[in-house]
Design a binder for these strands. Structure first.
Lengths: 118, 118
DNA sequence: GGGTCCGGTTACTTCAAGGGAACCGGGGTC
DNA sequence: GACCCCGGTTCCCTTGAAGTAACCGGACCC
């Protein structure tokens, strides 16, 4: 029933910790490496590089290095990356609409587990 | 800009390996533990239990044990779990529509990397 | 008394993502 | 000569998800 091509796995790297946020950061236009670190204040340069390289390999993002001094590198969404924003918006809207309910149910169950554990 | 509540992280456990597929398996109605193992033929009982417990805690799935012999336990989607099918369908449709393009771009970039590595 | 079925549990191991901290090179600036 | 900026890289470590294999208890069946 389920195999690697079944389409029930999220589109490749969107399940990781930073890709979705990077997509959002790049939505309004190209950004430099250090500009991306500001909103994602918890990301280390290592992880940021890794994530950007992977997104570039998968064609969501393009990398342009300008031969200046000090160096300047700009990351931008490709057409494919921009296309990803549509299902992502849909999912975000759904999450916002159900967030209170989701958190409520979970909290309730965690409380119950705690009470049973006594 | 981004914190834990920003809604840009996937709705909780949908990013893990088996949850999305379990949702699909339960779409048509309640299923028993061993019935779930058939379509997910690569899942071990340990991982299946873990995933179901987590989905239960988050309120996607309900667990009903019948006092029979041999034992019978049925898992079913809750209303909230069923609501998740909508954004999931949207995402699956998007993935199917772009799958060829995504795989093509990735393959191209992997080839280029390989060529540069020589 | 041995086997089957069901719905798991337990112990051990593997693997990749992620994080922290330090370092780097090239050029410009004081 | 020392310091800054930018865009990283390198090394080491922790964590958690996942996998493997073996085992369990109750009841019924032969």
């Amino acid at each position: 029933m389920f195999d690697a091509d079944c389409g029930h796995r999220m589109p490749f790297r969107v399940g990781d910790k930073w890709s979705a946020m990077l997509l959002r950061c790049l939505e309004a236009g190209p950004r430099r490496f250090t500009e991306l670190k500001v909103p994602l204040h918890r990301v280390s340069p290592k992880v940021l590089t890794e994530t950007l390289r992977a997104m570039e390999r998968d064609g969501w993002v393009s990398r342009t290095a300008y031969d200046e001094n000090p160096p300047r590198v700009e990351y931008a969404l490709t057409a494919l990356g921009r296309a990803l924003l549509d299902p992502m918006d849909h999912l975000c809207a759904w999450t916002r609409a159900h967030r209170a309910e989701i958190l409520g149910v979970r909290e309730e169950n965690v409380q119950r587990e705690y009470a049973q554990g006594e």
